[in-house]
C-alpha cells in the first residue's frame, strides 16, 4: 500500500480545494493519520473507498475524542539592563493563552478487497460548544451507522446527513454527553467504609450526613491531597 504522504498528495491533486493534513503519531505504533476538513470529507471518503489502488471498502472503527480547552503558559525571558549600572538582569514574563478545544472523530479504514490498511482519517469540529457539526460518512460506509450514533450520544458531535441520528446507548430524554471530559455525574452519595478517590471527595462534601471521617479506624487509604482538606 502507498504511504500516507502519497495518499495525501493524490487526494490534494484530485480535490485541490480540500485541506488534508498529515498528523504524526509520536508513539511506538507510528500510526499516522490524515486530518480532513469538514466540507470535503464526504467526497474524499468516496475517493478513498472507490479508488482502484486503495479500495478502502471497510470502515472498521469510528471513535470520538474530546480535547478540552487547554491553558498554555508561555514563558519569555527578556534581558533588561540594570539602571544602577550592574550586570543586566533576566526577567521572566509569563503569558497564558487559551488553546481552544475541539471534538474529534477518528475513522480506521481497511480494505477487504486488497487486504491492506489501516488508513486513519480524522475530522475535527470548530469548537466544543456550538459548532459541533461534522459530515456523516454513513452514506459512504454503512458501518459508521451505529458508531456515529454512539459518538453523537456520548460526545455530542452532530453528524449531518446521517439517516437516523438519535441516541443509541442512553435513553432519549437524557440531556448530557457523558464521555466529555467536563461531564459531572449527578451527586449520588453512598457511605463507604473505605472511601477512596472521588468517593472520598464526595464523602467530605456530604460530611453533614455522615460522621465517617471522625474516629480512628476509618482512615482513607489514599494520602490526602492538599486541596481536599476540609
Amino acid at each position: 500500500m502507498e504511504t500516507l504522504e502519497q495518499i495525501r498528495d493524490r487526494l490534494v491533486a484530485r480535490f485541490p480545494s480540500a485541506q488534508v493534513t498529515l498528523v504524526t503519531n509520536p508513539g511506538a505504533a507510528a500510526e499516522h493519520s490524515l486530518l480532513l476538513d469538514a466540507t470535503h470529507a464526504h467526497d474524499l471518503a468516496l475517493f478513498l473507498r472507490d479508488d482502484p489502488a486503495l479500495r478502502l471498502d471497510y470502515c472498521s472503527n469510528v471513535t470520538g475524542v474530546d480535547w478540552p480547552d487547554k491553558e498554555i503558559t508561555d514563558v519569555t525571558k527578556t534581558t533588561v539592563p540594570d539602571p544602577a549600572g550592574g550586570p543586566p538582569k533576566i526577567v521572566e514574563s509569563k503569558t497564558t493563552r487559551l488553546q481552544p478545544g475541539y471534538l474529534e472523530a477518528v475513522y480506521h479504514l481497511y480494505s477487504m478487497a486488497l487486504k491492506h490498511g489501516p488508513v486513519v482519517i480524522r475530522m475535527r469540529t470548530a469548537n466544543r460548544s456550538d459548532a459541533v457539526a461534522l459530515p456523516s460518512l454513513t452514506p459512504v460506509w454503512r458501518a459508521c451507522d451505529f458508531q456515529e450514533r454512539e459518538v453523537y450520544d456520548l460526545y455530542g458531535i452532530i453528524f449531518e446527513r446521517h439517516p437516523d441520528l438519535r441516541r443509541i446507548l442512553m435513553w432519549d430524554e437524557f440531556k448530557d454527553h457523558p464521555m466529555r471530559k467536563d461531564y459531572v455525574e449527578p451527586d449520588d452519595y453512598e457511605w463507604e467504609p473505605t472511601a477512596h478517590g472521588d468517593v472520598l471527595e464526595r464523602a467530605k462534601a456530604n460530611a453533614a450526613t455522615a460522621e465517617n471521617l471522625k474516629g480512628g479506624n476509618l482512615q482513607p487509604e489514599v494520602p490526602q491531597t492538599p486541596e481536599a482538606k476540609p
Binding site: W191, A210, N212, N217, L218
Partner: peptide
C-alpha cells in the same frame, strides 16, 4: 427518583467514640 426511600436507605456509619 434515583432511589426509592421506602425500600432502601443508605447505611449509617457507626459512630466510634
Amino acid at each position: 427518583p434515583p432511589k426509592n426511600d421506602s425500600v432502601w436507605t443508605p447505611p449509617k456509619p457507626e459512630a466510634k467514640a
